[in-house]
Structure formats: structure tokens, C-alpha cells
Amino acid sequence: MIRSLPNSPLYKYGYRFYITLFFIFLVLPLIAISVLAFNDSNSIALPWHGFSLDWFFANNDNRVGLFHDEDLLRSIWISVETAFAMAILSTVVGTMAALLFEQEKFKFKGLLYFFAIAPLVIPGVILGISILLSSSYVGEILDTKFGIDTEVFSPGFWLVVFGQFSFGATYALLLVSARLKKFDPQLEEAALSLKASRLQAIRYITIPFLKPAIIGAFAVTFIMSFSNFNTTIFLVGSDPTLPVELFSRIKFSSTPVLNAVSFMIVLFITIVATISLFTNRKK
């Protein structure tokens, strides 16, 4: 049943067979995309018409490859900018929240903590529509009552960043808290007794200890932002992020350039994953 117990061959091979099937199920979409990105065809699927790099490099009347597809490249760039802003905000506020909830005592702490982790169980659509509702409400009041035309409150870059940050901070909070629980408070107490202020102690003692978790939180929230659709779609303005652009292309005009961009994402993630595998192994 487990490593240390003897198993019947039926159990052993039957189990192995199931696991193999599972992993095929898991990688099949990724492999299909990657292979068909190099298909010399105008259709996204089979049959195979031979190897071609057209969907990356071509630029003619029939085919526009990824590297000449202005709209697609722009959406990738917007996604990178969004993810960067969202990950920084989420990591900073999430770390502050972790310090607050793990180390401080105050009134209504339980209630605030409840709101801080609620985004874990609130569907992304709900966060999207409720933030859209309140921001447009505030924008309208500012416009009609005060005559101030504010772009921040209408759908666009910053609304997407704040919408994604509303749940990103929760994940950063949880990742940093997990490491903070292993922190020895005596280290900080020693700093305080040596006349460091609490903020200095956080800056020079606690933050360096939390560094791996903070980097992890940045990476996780960056990836979350980069692939988010459910919240983003409500808050996006005239500049679509990559998932929003992909969605409308899949619905209305799919060409194998979608395979090409998907392949690039799969490749990038696989490289990141391999690096993390080897760095973890070294430790």
C-alpha cells in the first residue's frame, strides 16, 4: 500500500497505470497546443501539414505571426505591467497584514482577519462586479457633484490592478504568515532591548527572515495576475490584458497564432518550474 509494505502486482501496476493516465490527461492540452503551434496550416487543430514557424514570424496577407501581431504583443505587455503593479502592491500590503495579524493585538482583529481571508472563498466574478459597482458610483459622484473627471474610477489599467490586488493581498498574507509563524520572537525582542524601534526591528530583523516568503508571494501573485480573467473582464477598459485578448480571439477569430502565444507561455512556465526544481534540490 505504501513504500514500506509489500504490494500485489495487480495493485502496483494497476495503480501505476491510473497515475500514467492522469498525467496524460494533465499534459495533453499543453502538448497539443505546443505541437500545433508549429503546424503549417491556417486551422488551429489537426490535420498536420508539416513543420512551420509561420505562426511566430510570418507577416503577410494570409498569416500574421506572434511577433508581428501588434494587438497580441500589446496585450502581453499590458499583462506584464498589470502583474508587476499588482504583485508589488499585494506583496507589500500582504506582508504588512501578516505582521499585523501575527504580531499585534487589537480590537476587532478576528473580524478584520475574516475579511482579509474572505477573498479565498469569494468567486472572482463577485469581486469584479462589486468593485466595478462601487468605483463607478464614486466616479459618478465625483463627476456630477464636484465636476472632477477621474480616470482611476472608470474601467482601465488601475481598476484592474486594484481589483486583482483585492484577492492578491490575501494570498501574499497567507504565504508570508506561514513563514512568520516559524519566526523566533526573541530575535526581535533582543533588537528592541538594544534600543531599536519596532519599525527598525521589522526592517532589519523580521523582513530579512521573511525574504524567501516575500519573494514567493511576489512570484505567486504575479502569475495569478498574469492569468486572471474572471475579475479582470469587468474592470478592463480599452486596453485588454492577455487573457482578455485570448478570450475574445478564441470566441471570434481563432488562428494558430493563439497556439504560438500559448506555446510561449507553456515554455516560459516550464523553464521557471525547472529552475525552481533545481534550486529546491540544492537546499
Binding site: L28, L36, I223, P243, I250, S262
Partner: peptide, 19 residues
């Protein structure tokens, strides 16, 4: 290997199933 489809994101993997 389990994490890769998660990180790649829903849009890409759902598109994979279309194919």
C-alpha cells in the same frame, strides 16, 4: 508537473481542450 497547468493559466489550458 502538477503545478505547471495551474501556472500556465485557465485560458491557455481551456484553449488546449478546444484543440
Amino acid at each position: 508537473m502538477l503545478l505547471i497547468p495551474l501556472w500556465v493559466g485557465e485560458l491557455v489550458t481551456i484553449y488546449g481542450w478546444v484543440i
